[in-house]
């Protein structure tokens, strides 16, 4: 009896030892393979078998970040490409950073290669970035919320830091497109100037400069900078038809700002017409005939009407946006 028990224990122990050995070996092997794969490509492509082997099966002391995506053009997932680019930046930053270790790996499952993985995890959207922690099952917070955090590499890195305590300093490959565009523009302008080097009068054309300056003012005054920074919709669609003017004074639509720019422009044009009709600044009007006078009167009236009507419109739009604004002119 006693002997039997001892034997049992011995067998058990051997078995345990053996299993422990295979497990340890498995982990080392897996780590080795994963490191090799990462060395080749910083995001490891996974299919069902690989996914089960490296991500799901237990001997694991490393975290795995996996992106589930559908990159095939037939899937028409526009955002997948963006997320992939950002994800790639994070994976590369990690791989080439000082903090690189074999506690964290990046993988990717494409729907067309591993649709069974999608089924296994009951995923029906893409892209999804999930974190498979070294211990335990993924919690809800282990899949990244793009809506809240955004899809920028910095956001992904921050989320990874939240989940795994691995800090990744995102290193973006420098974006040369801006520099290239600038250089191209510079070369074009320089080339243009060089080609026309005998005829540079146009640079002294005050009219052109004045038009540019005035247009710049219109753009700024109508809030294009706000549009640029805040990215509002072009206009708002509601059940009762499109709305072009934002109701509040703290917001605006893109179309609205164009309308305002045009109203401003009309007032300015009207005023310039009036001034020119009245003789202009330099007053260089040699011949003054009766017909000329008629034309001037007409031009002046047109200018006056432009100024009054469009300024009233502007005031009305402003009044509609500002609660409790009491004043209006011509129109309510």
């Amino acid at each position: 009896m006693n002997f039997k028990a001892l034997l049992c224990l011995f067998v058990l122990l051997t078995f345990y030892q053996g299993e422990a050995q295979t497990r340890a070996k498995g982990l080392d092997e897996k780590l080795q393979q994963l490191t090799d794969m990462t060395a080749k490509k910083s995001i490891i492509p996974l299919n069902l078998n690989k996914f089960k082997e490296y991500v799901k099966s237990p001997p694991r002391d490393y975290s795995f970040i996996v992106m589930f995506t559908a990159m095939a053009p037939a899937r028409r997932c526009a955002i997948c490409q963006h997320v992939y680019d950002e994800y790639m930046i994070v994976a590369n930053s990690f791989r080439f950073s000082q903090a690189y270790n074999n506690k964290l790996f990046f993988g990717m499952v494409d729907f067309d290669e591993g649709s069974d993985v999608f089924q296994m995890l009951r995923l029906n959207t893409a892209p999804v970035i999930m974190h498979f922690p070294a211990k335990g099952k993924p919690k809800p917070a282990d899949s990244m919320d793009f809506e809240r955090a955004g899809i920028h590499a910095e956001a992904i890195a921050k989320w990874i830091q939240d989940r795994t305590d691995v800090q990744i300093r995102v290193f973006r490959p420098p974006n040369y497109s801006g520099a290239v565009a600038f250089t191209m523009l510079f070369i074009l302008v320089a080339g243009f100037l060089y080609l026309r080097r005998n005829n540079l009068e146009f640079l002294y054309n005050k009219q052109m400069w004045a038009v540019c300056a005035v247009f710049f003012c219109f753009a700024m005054v109508s809030g294009q900078m706000w549009n640029q920074i805040r990215g509002p919709p072009f206009f708002h669609r509601t059940k009762n038809g499109p709305v072009y003017i934002n109701g509040g004074s703290h917001g605006q639509f893109v179309l609205e700002s164009y309308i305002v720019a045009i109203l401003n422009g009309a007032v300015v044009v009207g005023m310039i017409l009036m001034i020119e009709a009245a003789g202009g600044v330099k007053n260089s009007d040699p011949a003054r005939t009766q017909a000329e006078g008629k034309r001037r009167r007409f031009q002046s009236v047109v200018g006056l009407v432009l100024v009054c009507v469009f300024f009233s419109l502007l005031l009305s739009v402003f009044r509609a946006k500002t609660q409790g604004y009491p004043y209006s002119f011509l129109f309510k």
Partner: peptide
């Protein structure tokens, strides 16, 4: 950043002249 209505609020007729 500044919306057009705060330009208009602060400058009124001056903004278009």
């Amino acid at each position: 950043p500044t919306t057009w209505s705060s330009f208009f609020f602060d400058l009124h007729v001056l903004v278009c002249t």
